[in-house]
Design a protein around this nucleic acid. Structure first.
Lengths: 134, 134
DNA sequence: TTTGGTGCAAAACCTTTGCATTAGG
DNA sequence: CCTAATGCAAAGGTTTTGCACCAAA
């Protein structure tokens, strides 16, 4: 029992969910993704969407975000640690890095003796396109 | 109809909720606060706790936070914009400031043409006391 | 064939709302 | 008195779970 067999199966539903995540440039809720799939004629249950997203999130293949209000949002992202500049209106997101923020967080936590430190940083705003639409 | 009368009444329930917020040094959920009140023998309905917290939050008298998972958390805080270093185990929070983070967020948003920018920054970790308890 | 995946319906949860009653000013 | 505040119960909405059936390997 050492050969860690993923036993992860490739199904039509998972491929469909993954495909939508590849094509969308913003954060979407599980229900959004489910609606998109239905519009396309793909028949995937909402339960499966939730379960697939959980799996992808656990595997670190997608980013999960929680806005100040509302539900969980998901998005396929590049590898590595980064943060997001998210449009409040359309959900479009830009990946941003902030080395200074990382070190600042580490320093602050260390100063107070906190261990196992992690952090969340999200920037919200209205993107140029949405601002233009008035 | 110009003298903006707050019409805000001081009730036993609101005082009780406010008192608990003053005495706790960590973030608590509405249900936590409700439980604490009941333990004390104070009889306050969960609905009232929720409504009182909403009011205090709208008035800017308490900070609302959303952890990566779980429900809304509330805490009485000092005035002004600041962020938190929160213990994942006991909820204790330290208010921290990061001028560099503020300007960084502004700059990043401006570079991408985003307007009406706001941001959230939370640092999570295990506080010294909780770490000692192993 | 074997075992993980799927999907429906139902359960769990947290939070909000409707409405009659209570009580602050 | 007048009207905001309270609290119970019920509604709302999202996410999870139980279970029988289906399909990938």
């Amino acid at each position: 029992m050492n050969a860690e067999s993923p036993a992860q199966r490739t199904t039509k539903q998972r491929s469909a969910v993954s495909a939508v995540l590849n094509e969308t440039e913003g954060f979407n809720s599980a229900q959004d993704l489910h609606a998109i799939l239905r519009e396309r004629g793909e028949s995937v249950g909402l339960t499966t969407v939730y379960r697939t997203l959980q799996g992808l999130a656990d595997a670190g293949e997608i980013d999960v975000m929680r806005p100040p209000d509302g539900d969980y949002l998901y998005r396929r992202c590049s590898q590595g640690h980064h943060h997001h500049l998210v449009c409040r209106s359309c959900g479009r997101a830009v990946e941003v890095e902030g080395p200074a923020v990382e070190s600042w967080a580490e320093k602050v936590a260390a100063k107070h003796g906190f261990k196992d430190v992690s952090h969340t940083v999200e920037i919200f705003g209205t993107c140029p396109e949405c601002a233009a639409k008035h």
